[in-house]
């Protein structure tokens, strides 16, 4: 599903942030990506979700070589990826309902589908009664769940979550990982990035660890399959 081979990333003439990163995410897997702050996790995720091009190496998404594909192909690939951003990135002037509906609207889904699916999904996420609220009125945990709902509303093949548990307490963090596991059980490949290595170790999932721009597989969790 996702394959990176010898990927390197640098900005301008600065030193490389990522060196020779190779990674493979198989369909249906749930993975953790750990590493201290500044290790390059977000940069690596950005390369996967097509926000940044790699400086070198090869990136293959859903059997498509992204370095040789055009903008239209990238747009189509993005429709298959759900992203939970580190800074949540909810649009303040839109309601919770409209924030979650965004991926459907940009994909030109019929409004009928949006009216049916969005409330149902928010209910599934335990956000009944919050449909017409502004994001600013929600707690951090609720905002995070809205962001997750937005990421999965289009039933993506790949869900990428960048520090989804970073700004919530342990109970909520545990709850969010359970949500990701439920999504994963529905067939979506999930990649969760966190700086909290101890937290990631609690779960029996395959883990990649990034240190000083180099990626390694850590075998302290059970394989995803």
């Amino acid at each position: 599903m996702v394959r990176l081979e010898n990927v390197g990333k640098s900005y301008g003439s600065d030193a490389e942030i990522l060196h020779d990163v190779s990674l493979q995410l198989d369909p249906g897997g749930l993975y953790f990506l750990t590493g201290n702050s500044g290790a390059g996790k977000t940069t690596l995720l950005k390369i996967i979700y097509l926000a940044e091009p790699p400086s070198r190496g090869m990136v293959t998404l859903f059997d498509t070589d992204v370095s040789t594909s055009d903008r239209a192909a990238h747009t189509a690939l993005r429709h298959r990826i759900g992203i939970v951003f580190q800074d949540v990135r909810l649009i303040d002037h839109l309601t919770v309902r409209d924030n979650v509906a965004l991926p459907l609207r940009v994909a030109r889904a019929p409004e009928r589908e949006i009216r049916e699916n969005v409330p149902e999904l928010l209910s599934w996420m335990g956000l009944d009664g919050k449909l017409d609220c502004c994001p600013a009125t929600l707690s951090g945990g609720e905002q995070q769940r809205v962001a997750i709902a937005r990421a999965i509303v289009r039933r993506p093949d790949l869900l990428i979550a960048d520090e989804p548990t970073g700004n919530v307490d342990d109970d909520i963090a545990m709850l969010l990982v359970r949500v990701f596991e439920r999504i994963n059980k529905l067939g979506t490949t999930v990649l969760i990035a966190t700086h909290d290595i101890a937290f990631a170790r609690q779960f029996a999932h395959r883990r990649y660890h990034l240190a000083k721009g180099a990626l390694s597989v850590v075998n302290d969790g059970a394989p995803a399959q």
């Binding site: 649009i91 965004l102 940009v106 994909a107």
Partner: peptide, 16 residues
Amino acid sequence: RSAIELLHLLGAQDEY
């Protein structure tokens, strides 16, 4: 910029 980048990453076409 942030919201535009968000729409772009959600798969919005430039036209949208």
